[in-house]
Amino acid sequence: MQQGMLSSVLLSLFLVFWPTNLSATEMEPERAEQWLRSEQIHQKVGELLQYVIEDSIDSLDFSLERLALPQQEVARYLLLKKLEQQNIILTPKMAIFVEEQKRKIPTYQILERNDGYEFSVPAFNYPAVANRLMKRWEQDQSTLDFVLKAERNELDLKTWLSGSEYQKKTREALLIRELDSLSPDAIITLTNQLTDELVTSWLPSTQVMVRLAQVSEDPQVYKLLWLMKTDEVSRGELDRLAMVADEFALQQIMLATHNPSLKQQALRNLTRIKPMSTDVKAFLISRMALKEDVTFVARELANQGYTSWLEELVTQDKSVKDRAILQVLSP
């Protein structure tokens, strides 16, 4: 008796909480494809799309509800697909309409078979499309909020990049993606929050710092970046600068040699610059005057074909550690 009561309770809970459509109607895949290709439905969707453009949601709802099934579900699906494919920006009223589509349960199901299992999927899965549209809309809203706050000088980086790990990662990705769309003044305001601190107590992730450095081209941001713990992101930026190899980029590579973890990579990148500028030559000569760097720099230069220059330095420049250089040059 108790087992029977328990089964009844479990069944009741299943029916209440399981998001299924008990009145679902099976449809053959071929029939669903025919509906999706229906010229009449596509014409109707064109009319519905005009309501979207006019932001006339009441008319849109009314027109959809007047359609019989399955035309109504096909039209909902195709309309939302058009919104997705055409990247139509949702107004607040349209966002409410799309949100409502997420909660609707499709009537028509297609039976699929795979690995001996049978399962039903919506023939016209407009809730899934609506879900993607709402995610994009939420991202658009977050982007707009970021841009407006940054342009109004109201964005506090430390506060904005705090919160749960998911929120931090999401906002970091947004900043990295949208930073170069900000005005120069907005970018300066953001970087000043980091560079104007007398004592640096907080810095964002390396990914964010690299993007801030790239977009701002602020040597002080690069200086902070090179002071951070080295990772593959900062190493990647060092290699990118070497590929750019303009005067600004080379200055930042030289600055990176102050980080012990980046020093050899930075020096190696400098020895590979061709043609080598006067500033880079002078910098490498200064490093060959240091006992801890001379052997490494001389070996890298020799590997790049600068043996004649090294021989010349040994005889003409008394500042370099000539014995160490000669050891590198000796067979």
Rank of each mutant, 00 (worst) to 15 (best):
Thr206Trp: 00
Thr206Arg: 10
Gln207Phe: 08
Gln207Gly: 12
Gln207Tyr: 09
Val208Cys: 13
Val208Trp: 04
Met209Cys: 10
Met209Lys: 09
Val210Gln: 00
Arg211Trp: 02
Leu212Asp: 01
Leu212Asn: 06
Ala213Gln: 09
Ala213Tyr: 00
Ser216Asn: 09
Ser216Tyr: 02
Gln220Met: 13
Val221Leu: 11
Tyr222Ser: 10
Lys223Leu: 12
Lys223Ile: 05
Leu224Ile: 03
Leu225Lys: 02
Trp226Asn: 04
Trp226Ile: 08
Leu227Cys: 12
Met228Arg: 11
Met228Phe: 08
Lys229Ile: 10
Lys229Val: 08
Thr230Cys: 10
Thr230Phe: 05
Val233Glu: 04
Val233Gln: 05
Val233Met: 07
Val233Tyr: 01
Ser234Tyr: 00
Arg235Ser: 13
Glu237Ile: 02
Leu238Thr: 01
Asp239Ser: 12
Asp239Met: 04
Arg240Ser: 14
Leu241Tyr: 00
Leu241Trp: 00
Leu241Gly: 00
Ala242Cys: 12
Met243Ile: 12
Met243Asp: 12
Val244Gln: 14
Val244Asp: 12
Val244Ala: 13
Asp246Tyr: 05
Asp246Pro: 07
Glu247Thr: 13
Phe248Ser: 12
Phe248Arg: 09
Phe248Pro: 04
Ala249Phe: 03
Leu250Phe: 03
Gln251Tyr: 08
Gln252Pro: 06
Ile253Ala: 09
Met254Ser: 01
Met254Leu: 07
Leu255Asp: 14
Ala256Asp: 07
His258Asn: 15
Pro260Cys: 08
Pro260Met: 09
Pro260Leu: 07
Pro260Ile: 06
Ser261Arg: 10
Ser261His: 11
Leu262Val: 05
Lys263Asp: 02
Lys263Phe: 08
Gln264Thr: 14
Gln265Asn: 13
Ala266Phe: 00
Asn269Thr: 01
Leu270Ala: 09
Leu270Gly: 09
Leu270Lys: 01
Thr271Met: 01
Thr271Trp: 03
Arg272Ile: 00
Ile273Cys: 05
Ile273Gln: 11
Lys274Tyr: 09
Lys274Phe: 12
Pro275Met: 02
Met276Val: 05
Thr278Ala: 14
Thr278Trp: 07
Thr278Asn: 15
Lys281Asp: 06
Lys281Met: 05
Phe283Tyr: 11
Leu284Asp: 10
Leu284Val: 07
Ile285Thr: 13
Ser286Leu: 08
Ser286Glu: 09
Arg287Glu: 12
Arg287Pro: 03
Met288Ser: 07
Met288Tyr: 08
Ala289Gln: 04
Leu290Glu: 14
Leu290Arg: 14
Glu292Ala: 13
Asp293Pro: 03
Asp293Met: 07
Val294Ile: 12
Thr295Pro: 11
Thr295Arg: 13
Thr295Ser: 15
Phe296Ser: 07
Phe296His: 06
Ala298Val: 01
Ala298Cys: 10
Arg299Ile: 02
Leu301Ala: 00
Ala302Cys: 10
Ala302Phe: 01
Ala302Pro: 01
Ala302Leu: 09
Ala302Glu: 11
Ala302Gly: 11
Asn303Gln: 13
Gln304Asn: 13
Gly305Pro: 02
Tyr306Leu: 12
Trp309Gly: 08
Leu310Phe: 04
Leu310Lys: 08
Glu312Asn: 15
Leu313Cys: 08
Leu313Gln: 07
Leu313Tyr: 00
Leu313Ser: 02
Leu313Glu: 06
Val314Arg: 06
Val314Pro: 03
Val314Trp: 03
Val314Thr: 09
Thr315Asp: 15
Thr315Glu: 15
Thr315Leu: 15
